[in-house]
Computed example of a mutant assay.
Amino acid sequence: MAALAVVVAGLVTWAVWPSPPPQPLARQYRDVTACLLTDERGITGEQAAPVWAGMQDASLKTLARVQYLKVSGEQTADNARTYLASLVQSRCTLVLAVGAAPVAAVGAGAERFPDARFVTVGGGTAAPNVSVVGESAPEAVRAAASRAVTEAVGPAR
């Protein structure tokens, strides 16, 4: 009888023992976003893939959100400027651009958004609010993109 009481007490204790709080299933991001503007190939393009990988690396370190937008339709600076404006107006902390049309759009439109920060990859001209990544090796581009995002958004708190 005593053994049964011990077993019942053990089961009751186990059943009512408080469980640890559940771990969050999603990463808790900060209220900063780095954005990537690409050509029609999106983040799978040869030039964009290492940039996107570097942005994701930085996101893990800084807890900044990263997102991308690809230019659909005509691959011209005029068409890409519309997409660029969309990213700036959505309050991206930093806009990276890769591909001929997106880079040309930054060149033509950065002056219009003096408070925005831009990074062009694979071309473009530096300006007060535009930095240019001149590296071409994928690992160097990845590292440069990660560094640019980390510097723009700051460390995780």
Rank of each mutant, 00 (worst) to 15 (best):
Y68I: 00
Q47Y: 13
Q56V: 12
Q28M: 11
A49I: 01
E46H: 14
Y29V: 06
T38G: 08
A64W: 00
P22F: 09
A34G: 01
E40F: 11
V32M: 04
A53D: 11
A26Q: 14
L25V: 12
M55T: 02
P18D: 02
A53N: 08
R27F: 06
Q47W: 13
S19D: 03
D39M: 03
G54F: 04
T38Q: 04
Q47P: 13
E46W: 09
L36S: 00
E40M: 03
V32Y: 00
I43T: 13
W17C: 07
W17S: 07
D57M: 04
G54A: 09
Q67P: 00
R41M: 12
C35H: 00
R41E: 12
K61W: 09
A48S: 05
Y68P: 01
R65G: 13
T44V: 12
D31H: 11
S59T: 08
Q23D: 12
C35S: 06
A58F: 03
Q56I: 11
G42H: 10
R30W: 03
L60E: 15
Q56G: 10
M55G: 05
D57H: 05
W52T: 00
P18K: 00
Y68E: 06
W52P: 06
D39P: 00
G42P: 11
E40R: 10
A49D: 08
M55K: 02
L36P: 04
L37P: 12
C35K: 02
Q28R: 14
T62F: 06
C35D: 01
L63G: 13
A49N: 02
D31V: 09
L36H: 00
A64R: 04
T62D: 12
P21L: 03
G42S: 12
L63F: 15
P21K: 10
L60D: 15
L37W: 07
A48K: 04
W17M: 10
A64T: 08
A49F: 02
D39F: 07
L25M: 13
K61R: 15
V66E: 05
L37G: 09
T62L: 09
R65D: 12
L63K: 15
A58E: 11
A26M: 12
Q67D: 14
I43C: 06
D31L: 11
T38E: 05
P21M: 07
C35W: 01
A34I: 01
G45L: 11
A26G: 00
Y68Q: 07
T44A: 14
V51G: 09
V32T: 02
L37C: 10
P21R: 11
M55N: 08
W52C: 05
Q56S: 12
P21V: 06
G45V: 09
W17P: 08
A64Q: 03
L36I: 02
P20K: 10
T38V: 08
R27K: 07
